[in-house]
Amino acid sequence: MRHGQHSLHVAIIMDGNGRWAARRGLARSEGHRRGMAVVRQTIKDALSLGIGYLTLYAFSSENWKRSETEVVFLMRMCETILAEELPFMINNDIRFLHAGRKEGLPETLRDMIVRAEDLTKNNKKLWVILAFNYGGRQEIVDAVRHIVVDIVEARRRAEDIDEKAIADALYVRGVPDPDLLIRTSGEMRLSNFLLWQICYTEFYVTNILWPDFRKRDFERALREFQKRQRRFGGVHD
């Protein structure tokens, strides 16, 4: 599916790594390691299924509250994944984008993110947006700050602010709102994810823990989505 009006955007809250490990008597790091392997495969699956945009919620702004050992592990794992998967993204026309604050991330990870974004900036077949050090409220706050600076410096007028202006000030520009949001592990909450963008997104929740998520589960979610009648606030019989 090429980019355009009908490119599907799927967002995923990848939940359940810790519970997956606990049920097996393993360290949380083992759950994260297995979860990252599923990330790799899910990107490949999205490519084969013709998805246009895939947003993955990997590390929230609230996850800094976890133990230092776990946070350091996740930072290093993200670096490793980017380094290992960058050739695949380049060779398969995949564009990588980061959503979240780069401030606070280790310098090596920031550099890797910038490098991946730069080397894939002209790719078009699939856009992979990694929400890392991301929070939905945080994103809106940062967008408002950006707009306020423009007003103070006379680059725009307050009366010119509309929904498009706010959307353009979010972390990632040029990406349509998600059509489908998948959440694993059965939790029925948004966890501060894409609060601006999901106003008309369809939700699909599965009890499967993220490390057990497979292509068949992805396809099941897509089939369910295709049965939905999206109204966007309108009334239809």
Rank of each mutant, 00 (worst) to 15 (best):
M1H: 13
Q5A: 11
H6N: 15
H6K: 15
V10S: 09
V10P: 11
I12D: 12
M14D: 06
G16W: 13
N17K: 06
A21N: 01
A21T: 08
A21L: 06
R23Q: 15
R24T: 10
G25T: 09
L26P: 13
A27V: 10
R28F: 04
R28N: 10
S29W: 05
G35V: 04
G35F: 01
G35T: 08
M36D: 13
A37Q: 14
A37T: 13
Q41E: 15
D45N: 14
G50Q: 09
I51Q: 07
I51P: 07
I51A: 09
G52K: 10
Y53I: 08
Y53V: 06
T55G: 01
L56H: 04
Y57G: 06
A58G: 15
W64S: 05
S67R: 05
S67V: 09
E68P: 12
V72Q: 14
V72E: 14
M75A: 06
I81Y: 14
I81H: 11
E84P: 00
L86A: 11
F88E: 09
M89H: 07
N91E: 15
N91T: 13
N91R: 14
I94C: 10
F96L: 14
L97E: 15
H98I: 13
A99G: 14
G100Q: 07
R101P: 03
K102G: 02
G104Y: 01
L105T: 02
L105E: 01
L105P: 01
P106L: 09
T108W: 05
T108F: 07
I113V: 14
E117C: 08
D118G: 13
T120W: 07
T120D: 11
N122G: 15
N123R: 11
K124Y: 01
K125P: 06
L126S: 12
V128F: 14
L130R: 06
A131T: 10
N133Y: 07
Y134E: 07
G136Y: 03
R137F: 03
Q138Y: 02
E139F: 00
D142T: 03
D142I: 03
H146W: 12
H146D: 14
H146S: 13
I147A: 01
I147P: 00
I147F: 05
V148C: 10
D150L: 11
V152P: 03
V152K: 11
E153Q: 13
R155E: 13
A158E: 12
A158C: 07
D160Y: 08
I161G: 01
D162T: 00
D162Y: 08
E163I: 04
I166F: 06
D168K: 07
D168E: 15
A169D: 00
Y171L: 03
V172D: 05
G174E: 12
V175L: 09
P176K: 01
D177E: 15
D177R: 02
P178M: 04
D179P: 10
L181G: 02
I182P: 01
S185I: 07
M188L: 11
N192S: 06
F193V: 04
L194I: 08
W196E: 03
Q197M: 11
C199R: 12
Y204M: 03
Y204A: 07
I208D: 05
L209W: 03
F213M: 00
R214W: 03
R214S: 04
K215W: 03
R220D: 14
R220W: 05
L222W: 08
R223L: 11
R223N: 14
E224Y: 07
K227C: 06
K227E: 14
R228T: 00
R231W: 08
F232W: 10
F232R: 10
F232H: 10
F232E: 13
G234T: 11
V235A: 09
V235W: 08
H236I: 10
